[in-house]
Amino acid sequence: MVALPEYFTIDWNGIELNVQQRTMRGRKVFQISFPDNEKDLFIHRATIATGKKMWMSIPEGRQEQAIPIGEEIIKLYRRLEKQQNEQ
């Protein structure tokens, strides 16, 4: 299993976002910093009532950002995992 770096950047809609992994109340949380002074976004993967996992914002209300940004984090994780497996 590959570990994401504590700090990394992702591209979202042509914008470079800074991401930091944090732990809040025992959960892995990602703090997303925007370059335009927009308030930081905190997201985590939650298991909803149906058993499906989805990205959630903390506090709730910024799902329209949390879901696609979370998907970019997953893409990065899968790239790193693939690179590690190729070595």
Rank of each mutant, 00 (worst) to 15 (best):
W12S: 14
W12Y: 13
W12F: 11
N13G: 14
N13W: 12
N13E: 15
G14T: 04
G14W: 13
I15E: 14
I15F: 11
E16F: 10
E16Q: 15
E16Y: 08
E16M: 12
E16C: 12
L17Q: 06
L17N: 10
L17R: 12
N18R: 15
V19I: 12
V19F: 00
V19A: 04
V19G: 10
Q20P: 03
Q20F: 07
Q20E: 14
Q20A: 15
Q20K: 14
Q21S: 10
Q21D: 09
Q21Y: 09
Q21W: 14
R22W: 15
R22S: 08
R22L: 09
T23K: 13
T23P: 06
T23Q: 10
T23I: 12
M24P: 01
M24Y: 08
M24R: 12
M24E: 07
M24V: 12
R25S: 14
R25L: 07
R25Y: 11
G26L: 02
G26W: 06
G26K: 01
G26V: 04
R27A: 00
R27V: 02
R27S: 03
K28A: 08
K28N: 14
V29A: 05
V29L: 00
V29C: 02
V29E: 00
V29D: 04
F30Q: 02
F30R: 07
F30M: 00
F30E: 00
F30N: 03
F30V: 06
F30T: 01
Q31L: 09
Q31F: 06
Q31I: 08
Q31Y: 09
I32T: 07
I32D: 02
I32Q: 03
S33R: 14
S33W: 10
F34L: 04
F34V: 06
F34M: 05
F34K: 14
P35K: 09
D36A: 07
D36S: 05
N37Y: 15
N37K: 15
E38Q: 13
E38S: 13
E38G: 08
E38L: 13
K39E: 12
K39L: 11
K39H: 10
K39C: 08
D40Q: 05
D40L: 01
D40T: 10
D40E: 05
D40F: 09
L41C: 01
L41I: 02
F42W: 05
F42A: 02
F42H: 10
F42K: 09
F42C: 03
F42R: 05
I43A: 03
I43P: 06
I43E: 02
I43H: 01
H44A: 07
H44Y: 13
H44C: 02
H44P: 03
H44L: 02
R45G: 09
A46D: 11
A46W: 09
A46C: 01
A46R: 15
T47F: 05
T47P: 03
T47D: 06
I48D: 05
I48E: 05
A49G: 11
A49E: 12
A49P: 14
A49M: 13
A49Q: 12
T50V: 00
T50G: 00
G51T: 00
K52W: 15
K53A: 11
K53F: 08
K53R: 12
K53S: 14
M54C: 04
M54V: 08
M54P: 04
W55M: 06
W55V: 02
W55F: 04
M56G: 08
S57A: 03
S57Y: 03
S57V: 00
I58K: 08
P59Y: 05
P59G: 01
P59T: 01
P59D: 00
